[in-house]
Design a protein around this nucleic acid. Structure first.
Lengths: 80, 80
DNA sequence: TTGATTTGTAAGATAATCTAACATAGTAAT
DNA sequence: ATTACTATGTTAGATTATCTTACAAATCAA
């Protein structure tokens, strides 16, 4: 009945992503700084995340929880 | 591969809902005041919308564009 | 014309997010 | 053990987003 929102369309603000991923804002920004995620920005320079971004962050969170460091995660997520 | 977000979970901020529905903030707040939508609120009293909310607003927008007034829309959307 | 409906706009307050900087615990290397 | 690096926390100050309330204006109905 409805058109849903594609996985690559950025619609989620930081607050929601923090809840959904169980990551802190600091962590999310750091992972972006490390090139692990590249959330879009709105006109006011606020980050806006897609479902793809969120799933990627969940994956990162999982790997972090397994004790894998950023270098390892970079290697594992080098592709899509 | 991914768990998506259920239609009734509130994750969208005003800014995104305005874009997705082509409604103004004023309109959205007015429709809420008229009982046509009931978005959730976060801890800071900001509105947070679910996909169901957005689809309902799109329906309202469509009816408004057809020249139907609030009373008419209320009648038509009285049920779920 | 009068009154109600619907939306715009503005003001002032509060919340959310941003960047940059410094602090710190943990890990690895020397 | 000391040093250096990694990953995250915390704080500060600035900027953006959203909230409520009020008043204005346009539209529609009586």
């Amino acid at each position: 009945m409805n058109k849903d929102i594609p996985d690559d369309v950025a619609t989620f603000p930081m607050s929601v992503v923090k809840e959904l991923t169980q990551l802190t804002g600091r962590q999310i920004r750091y992972y972006e700084e490390q090139g692990l995620v590249k959330p879009a920005r709105n006109e006011g320079n606020r980050r806006v995340f897609s479902l793809n971004d969120i799933n990627r962050l969940k994956k990162i969170k999982s790997l972090i929880d397994q004790g894998i460091n950023i270098a390892g995660i970079k290697a594992m997520l080098k592709d899509k």
